[in-house]
Design a binder for these strands. Structure first.
Lengths: 214, 214
DNA sequence: GAATTAATTAAACGTTCGTTTTATTAATTT
DNA sequence: AAATTAATAAAACGAACGTTTAATTAATTC
């Protein structure tokens, strides 16, 4: 009826976050009740309020940390490289790996925006916009250098992000394809989609080789 | 306190559907209450139950009819054409037009699947799968005819659908771009993404023309 | 070992939810 | 004009919701 033996605030909070991500990803934020979440963690509902002041604050925390982790992963993965094609490759590969590894959290961050209040929504959208801007910059640099054929930078960035984020809709680990195989295929599609010059060159090299072999 | 003068079942049901699509698209199915919906329509909550037996049945009806309309629009738009490239063009153009015209209903159909019971979910997924199969068939035919370069038919189909459905996330009519302009850009990206041969030919034709003009 | 702080339970709060029941009036049919 | 059917309002149902309060025990500090 009170503090349980061996209870630990740090562990409980981590368990709440984990359970919340799973439950919200599966049922949606509005459909998950604090009692349901508490039961999953193994505590009473009131105990949740020691760690998060409100249900919405819990959601906002999960989203903010997910977006910050995404931006952090990109900063770590980005080769300090001048080559736009290498940067584009890094971006797509990092995005797919990160999203496959955190399918549930991504689902939450993408689907539950409408459950946030104005201020909380604004703070998440700011992070999201910053991330999208990274891709737009790469595409513009690539187009300026004559390495990419991009009609509309903003529109192409949205198309690519939607395409590569869509992986989480159908991808399941331990099925037909590995993460690396999926990444390779999506990279090839991205390069074709943006008219990347290396791709065209590769194709010509291959064609030439075939012709010479005859 | 009872039947209102001028009330009409047909009109009321239509009003319920319209209001439901708007409200669910904006707030999410779980967040919309029957009282809120009724207020939007201008009736009491109990009146809704004359038209839909439960809240979930209302959602299911909206989704089913949306998916059937999408399949119907595709059947009407599909030129009875043997050329896979022409069919691919029709598919993308029809998809974007339909989704832009019915942004809210599309949002509902894509986001609220988890609020459906097993049986209702199955019936919607069946329609969705049938639609996706249309695109897979086009891609396979195109690849078999040597007109497209597609590594993985299923994966490419998902990538394209996610890309072109994503239009509704950012597109707003009466802004920078018209539907036709957006469609043209997405068609160009789709053709590049699938390595469509016409595109390569066009490019060569254009390049030749430029060279000759010098 | 006494005092304090951390972690939790148990119980309750007022509110709101989807839905049902019953009554009432408008429109239609006979 | 009487009888019937369609369309709704009004009120209530029990259940469940997010959250708060108060009490209680475990762990830590002094």
């Amino acid at each position: 009826m009170a503090r349980t033996a061996g209870s630990d605030g740090g562990r409980t909070e981590a368990a709440i976050r984990e359970a919340a991500v799973q439950l919200i990803a599966r049922h949606g934020f509005e459909a998950v009740t604090m009692r349901q979440l508490a039961a999953e963690v193994g505590v009473q509902a009131a105990a949740l309020y020691r760690y998060f002041p409100t249900k919405e604050d819990l959601l906002h925390t999960l989203m903010r940390e997910h977006m910050e982790a995404l931006l952090g992963a990109w900063e770590a993965a980005r080769a300090d490289n001048d080559d736009p094609l290498a940067r584009l490759t890094s971006f797509v590969a990092n995005h797919i790996r990160f999203h496959v590894e955190r399918r549930h959290a991504t689902h939450v961050s993408n689907m539950e925006l409408r459950s946030l209040s104005r201020d909380n929504l604004t703070s998440i959208l700011k992070l999201r916009t910053a991330y999208e801007k990274e891709l737009r910059t790469i595409l513009r640099d690539g187009a300026d250098a004559g390495l990419l054929e991009v009609d509309d930078t903003g529109l192409t960035a949205m198309a690519i992000i939607q395409m590569i984020t869509g992986v989480i809709v159908w991808f399941r680990p331990d099925e037909r394809l590995s993460v690396d195989e999926v990444t390779a295929t999506y990279l090839a599609m991205t390069m074709r989609l943006t008219g990347a010059k290396t791709n065209a060159e590769d194709r010509h090299v291959r064609q030439d080789a075939e012709l010479r072999a005859r």
